[in-house]
């Protein structure tokens, strides 16, 4: 059985090693197939980091990731707390919400693209219903596109946060709340002194997983805007894609891909380290 494992590890880590290999050569369309791309060390990294597009792209990625996480998490928490009160049909309603989560990204992205469309979009129809008449094409306005994409991504992500947080809430023994009630604690006090401390590991794990998944998000943005308009939603993963497959600068693309990978990897290591320290201090 061991050969299977070795095969798998090689199969998955070879691409990674190959990305690193590509990233230190000046690979382009001409010398890619033929071979013989010159070795240029870390120059691709330097070029990408100092290119005018990098910093805005990083900022957009961070706004997208943190904005999505903030709303996914708070709304997901609210749903989880609501479902945790246990009422008839709550299991059924939770299952329905999960449908949104398993929707293929291409489908949810097309759906939102079309909610945001100018003359026959659902959003404008809804605003018209409220008495605000507009023909705004949300995704082609550079000032609105990023927010629009974040809203769509929040929608997709809520069920995931709800699911994990709900499982965490279920794990808190109700005796704690009963004891607190006897001591005269109000709902806010119970939430602050019982729910939050008990949920800390679950909250951290959910946020980390959410961060990693959102930071590398590609499909949903690519389908909705392809990084446009005017680079307003050009997150790092799209920048990598464009470098590699639109301009065919594979060396630069590989370097950029490694930078994209480095950030969530670094965060995961910090997280593991924090957890280990916390566990040993207990």
């Amino acid at each position: 059985m061991l050969p299977a494992v070795l095969f798998l590890v090689a199969f998955m880590f070879y691409p990674l090693a190959y990305t690193f290999y590509l990233s230190v050569f000046d690979v382009n369309a001409a010398n890619f197939i033929r071979g013989g791309a010159p070795f240029i060390g870390l120059q691709n990294y330097g070029e990408f980091l100092s290119s005018p597009g990098f910093f805005p792209s990083l900022v957009i990625t961070l706004i997208f990731t943190l904005g999505s996480l903030l709303f996914q998490h708070t709304i997901g928490f609210a749903f989880a707390a609501f479902f945790n009160r246990g009422f008839p049909l709550s299991g059924f309603l939770r299952a329905i919400m999960l449908v949104v989560w398993v929707l293929p990204a291409v489908v949810s992205a097309s759906l939102w693209r079309w909610i945001y469309s100018g003359s026959y979009g659902l959003l404008n129809a809804f605003l018209g219903f409220l008495g605000i008449h507009t023909e705004e094409a949300w995704l082609t306005n550079p000032n609105l596109a990023l927010i629009a994409v974040i809203v769509a991504n929040v929608w997709v992500g809520i069920p995931f946060h709800m699911l994990l947080l709900y499982a965490g809430l279920q794990g808190i023994p109700s005796s704690l709340y009963e004891a607190a009630s006897i001591d005269g604690a109000g709902p806010w006090q119970k939430f602050r002194s019982i729910t939050i401390p008990m949920m800390r590991p679950v909250i951290l794990t959910t946020l980390l997983l959410g961060f990693v998944h959102t930071f590398k998000a590609f499909d949903i943005i690519y389908v909705m805007t392809s990084g446009g308009p005017a680079s307003a939603t050009n997150v790092l993963s799209i920048a990598v894609y464009q470098l590699s497959f639109n301009y065919f600068r594979l060396g630069d693309g590989a370097a950029a891909a490694n930078i994209l990978l480095a950030i969530p990897l670094f965060l995961s290591i910090v997280y593991l380290w924090l957890r280990r320290r916390e566990e040993s201090s207990l």
């Binding site: 691409p15 590509l22 590398k216 993963s237 594979l250 490694n258 994209l260 990978l261 990897l265």
Partner: peptide, 9 residues
């Protein structure tokens, strides 16, 4: 953790 694009390239 790998971004899909890191594998795709």
């Amino acid at each position: 953790l790998l971004p899909a694009i890191n594998v795709a390239l």
